[in-house]
Write a protein that binds this DNA or RNA. Structure first.
Lengths: 200, 200
DNA sequence: AATTTAATTGAACGGTGATCATTTCTGGTG
DNA sequence: CACCAGAAATGATCACCGTTCAATTAAATT
């Protein structure tokens, strides 16, 4: 059809991402198809490749959107939180994963075709998410050195991630666990308490 | 070729599983191909389907083998452990994942085509793995009730899993973490200490 | 030797990600 | 207004995938 001024390149990107997220949420990563996204948007597969370059490019755009929404969700929860900001953070983590299970899983299950790392701009989004958590850990441990805060934050996020992953992968339900978020919160509290005791 | 007495059905299964594991370790789940496994074993794709029924059936057989080897690895480490059995357990967990990264990841990233649960026999292998950990937790908390031990074990395994997953997915290296196993062990120790204090 | 039975095969089907020569439209020029 | 150069959009084409199943072939039975 030639240069359609129907949509700018930015609009096109947004169309594909919106439809891609809809489809990812429905079918999950394993059945996800770039062709099907293009078809439902009403553009050809060739146009989708013009915009994103590859399947990886499309998936990165989708996961980047998920990461941004996740970070926003956490900040919203923290803004509305009372005294117990750690609980707000852990619950916000679980809420987002539970409300967007397929998209959340896709963040971890998509791998670049060449096995290489994701581009800088994508890693920045993951780092931003981590910094939200680090801010709260720093608030809990005012005396701690910055590097110690970061190291502890990484470990705490890994702890929560493990509980959240088991919850979404149904590993927990298979084993009889019913309140994974509570368990994760309890673990985080223990670690923060131990760190406070060490600091004194 | 008709009924080849070259291999019994059991031998055939073993041939496919051995070659499948080799290929999974090389290429990873995303590029893994049942056709390629059949080709390299020297049987047709049809015979592979006679044996395993589907791609899911093959993957379950591969993942079942991985789970069994993992449990064996943990028991071996515990048998050779000194006083610090918890360290042996956590390190054994990480060692196996690090030595078999693609196979370990496939355990979590393979999903049944219909989204349903894995068959009973497969779940039993996962439960066995959990029971290895539960035995050590029970040893640490002799006073604790059985159900409390199981609940704590689930949470501790989730904690270690989170650290291990971040290590293998390179989330940690992206964030500057260098000793994920040490961090996981520290978290486990804190939780066990807190539980002991509660029991008193 | 003839027949039955069951294991093995691989072509065929509909789908995928990826490519790129071709077509089709648009903005600018004379 | 007619023309053209260039960019956007296309979809046939390719190699591969999981899956199916009629046909084939070798072993077991008669």
């Amino acid at each position: 059809m030639g240069r359609r001024s129907d949509h700018t390149r930015i609009e096109l990107e947004e169309l594909f991402v919106a439809e891609g997220r809809r489809q990812l949420a429905e079918t999950g990563l394993a059945r996800f198809s770039a062709r099907e996204v293009a078809k439902r948007v009403g553009y050809s597969i060739g146009t989708l490749y013009n915009v994103f370059g590859s399947y990886d490019g499309l998936m990165l755009a989708l996961n980047a959107r998920t990461l941004a929404l996740w970070a926003q969700h956490l900040r919203d929860r923290l803004a509305a939180a009372g005294d117990d900001r750690i609980r707000a953070l852990v619950c916000g983590y679980f809420e987002f994963a539970r409300d967007n299970p397929k998209a959340w899983i896709a963040i971890y299950e998509h791998h670049m075709a060449d096995g290489g790392p994701a581009p800088e701009s994508y890693q920045a989004l993951a780092a931003d998410l981590m910094s939200v958590a680090a801010g709260e850990v720093a608030r809990e441990l005012p005396e701690a050195a910055a590097e110690a805060v970061l190291a502890l934050t990484r470990s705490l996020v890994a702890t929560v991630h493990g509980h959240c992953a088991f919850a979404l992968y149904r590993t927990f339900s298979m084993l009889g666990e019913t309140a994974p978020a509570d368990a994760a919160l309890a673990r985080v509290r223990e670690t923060l308490e131990a760190a406070k005791t060490r600091d004194r």
